[in-house]
Design a protein around this nucleic acid. Structure first.
Lengths: 125, 125
DNA sequence: CGCTCTGTTGACCTTTACGGAAACGTAATG
DNA sequence: CATTACGTTTCCGTAAAGGTCAACAGAGCG
């Protein structure tokens, strides 16, 4: 049975993604996720869960929550008006370019650190 | 003449690296750089300049100043005691691993965003 | 019924990485 | 000598991304 859950409590998502409930509520305050409510309790849909995954990966690659929100929003209006579309493309492209630059920096840093490690390991002494 | 400067004022470095003087002094407070003084003025050596470049790249790849300080310090004691050496290698290796993971995340994000852009561009409408 | 779990809303606290501005020093320049 | 440029320290402020803690609510259970 491919655990086909479609709704999650805050605790479930916290555990799955190793984040605190506070963080999830914070993302909600910042309008990054908008789970439904049953009474006062939050119910996260599969889509919310996917967005959360996106958010966390965005964070790992060094995007700010603001950046992430913008990108998520752009996704949502992917079917929007033509004028908007160009802007959307522009911004996404800009983020892609920034990320590629970041990758260059990372490669350089990794290489430099690796050389250093190799040097240390090679020391006979 | 390959501009072979060996000493720099705070202003020069600020301009070259597009950082504020306040930031450089802050890095100094945090013991990331330690320029000499002529009287009260800071004189940055070629080595300080290199460290600064390292710091800034470290920041771009998402390391904290604390991480960066640790790595820079490890570099400096690269000739240190044997016991220390293992720890040094360990930490550097850990950072390298973390950075590689970050790269993977970046690749995934770049790909996803690129697909989205392609999709938008492909829309006839 | 009382206890424990899980969740909820605030309100305030914390850390990182600076920016700004005050108040002062020094050095060259008209 | 006064100005201007550049530099210094010190203190205060800010923004991001939560953490912490109090106080309370509903649900299941022995």
């Amino acid at each position: 049975m491919l655990s086909t859950k479609t709704h999650f409590s805050i605790g479930e998502l916290c555990e799955e993604f190793a984040v605190t409930a506070r963080a999830l509520r914070f993302y909600e305050d910042e309008a990054l996720i908008a789970p439904e409510r049953r009474g006062t309790q939050r119910i996260y849909s599969e889509r919310d869960r996917a967005r959360l995954a996106w958010i966390l990966r965005g964070k790992r690659v060094g995007l700010s929550l603001t950046d992430i929100k913008e990108l998520l929003d752009l996704y949502d209006v992917g079917d929007g008006r033509r004028t908007q579309k160009l802007k959307t493309i522009e911004r996404c492209q800009a983020q892609v370019d920034a990320l590629k630059q970041r990758r260059v920096d990372i490669d350089a840093t990794v290489e430099e650190l690796s050389k250093f490690v190799a040097l240390l390991k090679g020391q006979t002494d």
